[in-house]
Every structure is written in structure tokens, then in C-alpha cells.
Design a protein around this nucleic acid. Structure first.
Lengths: 185, 185
DNA sequence: TATTGTTATACTCTATAACTATA
DNA sequence: TATAGTTATAGAGTATAACAATA
């Protein structure tokens, strides 16, 4: 980004290495070094991975979210998906999924059709053009995923998946109890 | 988000469980199930964790990036940091760090000062108000980090940190070789 | 010539509220 | 009353390009 060359990888690595933080952070009762280090690593690694794939997708003029919409719709095949379901799957609000679907529909990558039986609902369905676009992306996409994760064994991948899932479920539980507490106050 | 109640956790969990993808995905030569599953878990888990902390910070009218700027500046104490360095650490371009620092300066949380010796450079330095704001946030922040990661042992945390670091380094290497290839074409 | 910071622009994403049409 | 979708709006993030001041 920003067109600068020497990517300052060393500077960032030492920044995120946590040593620098300890002087201030140790003052806090709750501070727990392995947890904070893992937290920073999760955030930092996600950023690098996500921007790598976002850059690859941008060559096809797709954002990560837009790519995910097409993936969901291809998986649903010609049945399509109601817009609110797409939003739920991607953690995007109903209001915002409208704009996302709009932009993909304008490009002819999906179409909206009505649902018989409930006239409130609109179904988004992938078009031939949308499928063709995915076909041009996915071979390289899956190959790149495979490539970047070669730094771990399959056993490590499975363990890591399991730990991330446990973490996620724990956070979701606490989000829900936050909300309940918020609603009763 | 979107004010809906029953967060559809089950629907999303089964969506990200990968089973649904296999029918299409197996067609691709590069497809490697444990890698793709881990990739989805990384993205999905980051989303849940990041939005949890973003919501907590928003109570103090700070974005994640804005909070990170203050953390960097507190760590630098009264020496402060040149704007371009902050941008490098946070993966934000020089153009965009200007707006971020602007908004924090308007609120009196940091100040810009000149650097003697190089009059191009401007240093951002945290103010007393900025430090006070951090002090009001960090005890709860560190406690919450500790809390959400209780689902793993310290040994697992260290292993996970190590694997994420290896992954990140690998992606950064490939970003750099992409760039070199791009520049020579 | 290169670097630092700024301004400007455009697009995406997120969050909220209010509206409609249906159920 | 609740749900599905839309419209509108505002703030934040990201990506580029062009520019002034300085090195």
C-alpha cells in the first residue's frame, strides 16, 4: 500500500512482538501475556491474509463480500437465496445487503426473482455470467489457499480450526449475554 | 446487527462447516479440505472477535484503528511518532493516516508537533486526555481478552500464536514475490 | 530525485432509522 | 404485530493521484 517499497516487515514484526507493550501493559491486573500475544497475532495475521485475497479479487472488480455472495448463490444453485438469508450468513444487515446485491445485479452477475407463496421475499439467483466469473477465479483461489497453508501439517490445521471454533463460540456466547444484559437495563 | 434477535448462529455454523461447499469445491484440482476449512474459520472467527471489540470501543467513540493509534502513541510516550511510521505499523497509507490523526487531534486526544532536524516530518504525540481515555478502556480490555481466550490452555495459545506467525510470514513472502513479478512485467 | 504530509476523489463497508408491502 | 426489503444518511476504511515543502 501507499506505493512504498521496503515493506518495513521487520519494524511491524517487532512492533507486534509484544515485548514493546509489556512495560505499560503489565500494570493491568487482567493482563495475561499469552492471551494478548495471541490476540495481536490473530488480528495482524487476518489483516495480512485478508488483504492478500482482497487484492487478488479486486482484479475481477469484486470485494470480499461480493465474492462471498456469489459463492453462497452458486452453492444454492437455481433455487437462489432470499436476501435476508445472505445477510445473516455474511453478518451484513438487511439494509446493507440491498446495496451489495444491487451492484452485483447491475453487472449481471445475479438476478432478483420473486418467491411464490410470500410476496415480501425476493430471491437472489446467480446468472451464467456470475458462474463464469467464479469459474475464472476459483481454481487460482483454491490453489492459493492450499499454498499459503503449506506451512502447517494437516494435523496442525485441524487443531487450529478446532481452537478457532471454540474461541468463536465463546465470544458469541458473551455477545449474547451482553445483549441480554443490555436489554434488561 | 440489523436489530434481529435469534442470531441464526446454527445456520451460520452449518454454513461455515464446509460440508455444503464440498459438492462444488471438490471439482477443483487445488482444493484441499483442511486448508479451506481453516481459512474459513480464520476469517469467520476474526469477524466475530473484531466486531466484539469494535462494539466495546465504540462506547468511547473510537474505531479499532483509532484505538490502535493511541496505543502506539502511548507506547512511544512523549517522543511521539512520525505520521508515516504510524501508517506503516497499522497498514494504513500516508494519505489515510492524515484523516485518522485529524479526527483524534480535533478531539484533543493527540497533538501534532514538528520534528527538529527534518522539517518535512510531523510527530503525533498523545495528550493527557488521550492517556486518560486509554486508562478508562484498558483494564476492561485486557480482562476481556483474558476472558475470551480461557477456552484454550496457555500451551495451546503459544502454539496457535506460532502457527499464525508462520502463516503470516508465508503470505508476506508471497505478497513480496507477487510485487516483484508485477514490477518486472 | 525521493520523502513527508496533505488534499481531493471515489468506492466499499458498517450502522441506524424510517418507510412500504406484505404476512 | 412481525417480517422482508428498500431508501436515506452518516461515519469509517481503503485506494489512487496529484501537489507543496523539504531533504
Amino acid at each position: 500500500m501507499s506505493g512504498s517499497r521496503g515493506w518495513e516487515t521487520d519494524k511491524r514484526a517487532s512492533f507486534y512482538s509484544l515485548d514493546r507493550w509489556l512495560r505499560h501493559a503489565r500494570r493491568y491486573r487482567g493482563f495475561h501475556e499469552p492471551s494478548v500475544e495471541l490476540h495481536l497475532n490473530l488480528i495482524y495475521t487476518y489483516g495480512v491474509v485478508a488483504s492478500h485475497f482482497a487484492r487478488r479479487l479486486s482484479a475481477k472488480r469484486l470485494s470480499l463480500s461480493a465474492g462471498n455472495v456469489l459463492m453462497i448463490l452458486r452453492e444454492s444453485e437455481n433455487k437462489g437465496r432470499p436476501l435476508h438469508e445472505i445477510g445473516e450468513l455474511l453478518l451484513v444487515s438487511r439494509a446493507n445487503i440491498t446495496a451489495l446485491v444491487d451492484s452485483l445485479e447491475r453487472r449481471g452477475l445475479l438476478e432478483r426473482v420473486g418467491q411464490e407463496g410470500d410476496r415480501r421475499v425476493r430471491i437472489a439467483r446467480i446468472t451464467k455470467a456470475g458462474e463464469a466469473l467464479l469459474e475464472s477465479i476459483l481454481p487460482g483461489h483454491y490453489a492459493e489457499i492450499r499454498r499459503i497453508y503449506t506451512v502447517m501439517s494437516s494435523k496442525e490445521k485441524i487443531l487450529l480450526s478446532r481452537l478457532l471454533t471454540k474461541l468463536r463460540n465463546n465470544v458469541q456466547r458473551s455477545i449474547e449475554s451482553d445483549r441480554e444484559r443490555g436489554e434488561n437495563t
